[in-house]
Design a protein around this nucleic acid. Structure first.
Lengths: 188, 188
DNA sequence: AGATTTTGGTCAGCATTATTGACGCATTTT
DNA sequence: AAAATGCGTCAATAATGCTGACCAAAATCT
């Protein structure tokens, strides 16, 4: 099979891009080009298959991934404003409106005027919305739990560290805000 | 800021869904609902920001993420057939055609008839295609290397294990095929 | 040889998600 | 009163995906 040979040649050809051809930085082997390309593969396949299950459920309801994201983040932060949600999703108002308006009309999400600023629409899930979000979550939970169990707690911690490292400053800040209320334990 | 209060209330409200309120399965704390929701967040933000840089470069060339995927997997497996590529991407022939045909026409990808089966089009990158793929790769490499360096080798291994666990059987098989030629070391 | 299957390409039509730019309304701030 | 903010909406456009149908060339089975 000449395929392996091709790969080797390709690896040689781009050797200039590598930092240490000798095992000098042995602890940095994971930074070799092949390792980084593998990360690309993993992110593509992993993300795709992670979302596949929920996507199928949503399709039955005439919704898409964008609806799920709204349900997810509204459920995660009840009372979130439209502006905050836009900041998290990093999409335009129009794109959000196209999914949010139907979600409100069909009774998945409620809008309440802000207490201090009545221009704001504080978003929350209705019971119907929470129920759908939960069904979607449980579908994805199976996938994540399976992966987490196979990999083990230590790998999970590593996964989190790397994923967080992939995010930009804005997402990092959003993550911190989302996590902050969750760090408390034994709350009941 | 009353926001934290909202979050706490929300957490209380759905407490019924948690499996183990007591630290009975202490080694399985990472399977708590909050941890799994965090994984959803991380995958969303991480994947989005990971692809953002390359997306911007592609937009300048009138291309999108789908073009990048073709360049990536063709570059990873020179001589791959259209059918194999379809299997990896898990999209329809029509969807692939819309990005592959322009890539061939604009000289990024070459098609060569198969040796044993002349119906096949064996796909490879031209020099132009390899150069573009490399530029895109180097953009993403910065993101991954940054995350990998921050997280450390052990975390990287965990990341890989979890991501692989998220993939379905088909993607797992594709990953194995992609990795296989890379496991050889010191092949000089 | 003839029928069937496989591989690949293409056409027509449609849905989802995203974009930019502009405008309008209510409300808050200056 | 004027400016800024928060939100919704209109119009137009783009990228990516889908289904269904159909065609051509090559391989394979009977």
């Amino acid at each position: 099979m000449p395929k392996a040979a091709q790969q080797v040649l390709a690896a040689e050809a781009e050797g200039a891009a590598r930092s240490a051809p000798a095992p000098a930085g042995r602890g940095l082997l994971f930074l070799r080009e092949e390792e980084l390309r593998l990360a690309q593969d993993l992110l593509f396949f992993g993300y795709r298959d992670f979302t596949a299950g929920a996507d199928a459920m949503l399709a039955d309801l005439g919704m898409g991934r964008a609806h799920h994201r709204v349900l997810h983040f509204v459920g995660r932060s009840p009372g979130i404003t439209v502006g905050e949600l836009l900041g998290i999703l990093a999409i335009t108002k129009q794109s959000l409106g196209r999914v949010l308006t139907p979600l409100v009309e069909e009774g998945y999400v409620t809008q309440a005027p802000g207490r201090t600023d009545r221009r704001q629409r504080l978003l929350s899930l209705t019971e119907k919305g929470a129920a759908l979000e939960r069904r979607l979550f449980e579908r994805q939970r199976e996938t994540i739990m399976q992966a987490y169990r196979e990999a083990g707690p230590q790998a999970v911690e590593g996964f989190r560290r790397v994923m967080r490292g992939l995010t930009g400053p804005d997402a990092r800040a959003a993550l911190d805000r989302l996590e902050a209320p969750g760090t408390r334990e034994g709350g009941g």
